[in-house]
Design a protein around this nucleic acid. Sequence first.
DNA 1: ATGTACAGACCGAGCAGGTA
DNA 2: TACCTGCTCGGTCTGTACAT
Length: 519
Amino acid sequence: MAGQGSQKKKSCDWSKRYVDHLNGKMKCFHLQMSANFGHSMTIPNKFLDHFGGTLSRTIELVSPKGIVYIVKVTEHMNKTILQCGWEAFVDAHHIEENDSLLFRHIENSRFEVLILDSDGCEKVFTCAGIKKTSSVQERNAAPVDISRSTHDETTQSSGSKKFVRCQRASDSQRGKTAKLAETSSSGESGEEGTDSSTSEDESSYELDDPQMPPGRNYVLSRWTSLSEAQEEKVDMLVQDIQPEIPVFVAIMKHSNVNSRRACLVIPKRYASAHFPLESQTITLQRQGKNKKWYPMFYIRKDGSGYMLYGCWKNFVRDNHVKEGDMCIFHLTKFTGGEFGATVHLLRETKSGSLGSFHTSHKRFDLRDGRTWPKVTGVRRVSSRPYLTADRVSLTEEQVRKVEEVVHSIQSEGPMYVSIMNKSNVGTDGLYIIIFGRQFATRYLPEGEQTLTLLMTGKSNAWQVKMRPRSGDAQMITTGWRHFVHDNHLQIEDICLFQLMNDESKLTMTVHIIRRNEKS
DNA sequence: ATGTACAGACCGAGCAGGTA
DNA sequence: TACCTGCTCGGTCTGTACAT
């Protein structure tokens, strides 16, 4: 085992940052592997202080794949050292010099670990990429005490899920601007320029912004939402960097990275609160890198758009930013007062996707020859067996609820999901439902139609008028009011419209998911 | 007079075309 | 190619005609 006999002494340059907020319940620390890192590791005393000066005899490290490594903790010469099991963790994740590890304390002696390479990019591990031996136990197996067996014994457990619950509860307790409880200042590379945050007025940003998830210290680009796995990663990063103002999280789309005119749109409210007041070049720097890029921050003359372009393409090219990657902008004033951002890049990982139900390419005929994708019930990575308005994004909770209903009804027909807003339920005097262009053009007949709405378990039927709307959309108007009242629809309730295969008339069954309904 | 239905304007982010 | 601007489209709001 490492750290024994003639083997090199393996140590780590422990975190320059060590945060402990949330009343001591959530602990997170960061380390970078120094030149002589390796198969045993000394725990810094300040970390141990949070555990009464001592750790359990074993701790559990939950890898990015959710595999739990049990690591033996020993004491030697007044130092606490991780030994047996640590080597297995290092080997299995191909941890190299200058990689960074982000540890978060989940519970008892368990830690979730995020692994970043020297560029600050998250290392992505496929099943094949994780070193496994015959002793590796599969999902749901009980953790194995590696200290009594080979160092490659690993096991996958529910650690990640527990971590999620732990984090959720903690988030609710956390204030928006939790401060660093303790910050060390070892001169770790790559942090230059990040220690002086922008002096923009943080109070100018409204916390009820729809793109700022409640209880979080980040802002999302519009029309995007994070998967649970992505949310976890952002949370970990935010805990580590402790931004004074919310970071901006952008999930790269085709137009951001692939288009000849690649640019990145900054949400208006965020840009107007925290970016310069007029068009100018700004500075971007990757976390852990010295190189800088100078994209143009452009404000339209009418103030209707804020975006990065120009050298933004170079940034994308030089850092191999791909569609689906997450760029997290930590706004910064660099040395010399130049405005810009330190960018943290988290690569897209399929392993973290939630999956939903598979839509095959097979289609079948419907009345008037229309066809729709067949739902097969097979889990898949990204697409969903239902449509929403083009730019509507569901929260993970809403996705979960909808998919439960979709799964339970086992429908093979097209489905459309609409989250009730003021105009849908009469709060602002309007009672309308709009079927977005994609759904309307694929599945709905053209022109004005009479649509029959049904509810499972109810004998009632509601006749509503459906009219074309600009942009190939279709809008339900007349009659929808009665449906809303009869079924007590409220804002944020979800209506899942299931198009029925009825040759005699246009019919949909509506499945209502109440806002407060537990999934 | 009040409630309802409808048309259309406006907003803002995404996207793509035009021009120097 | 870099930069700027116009168009698209979903969501929202406003004004008006019509029905009761």
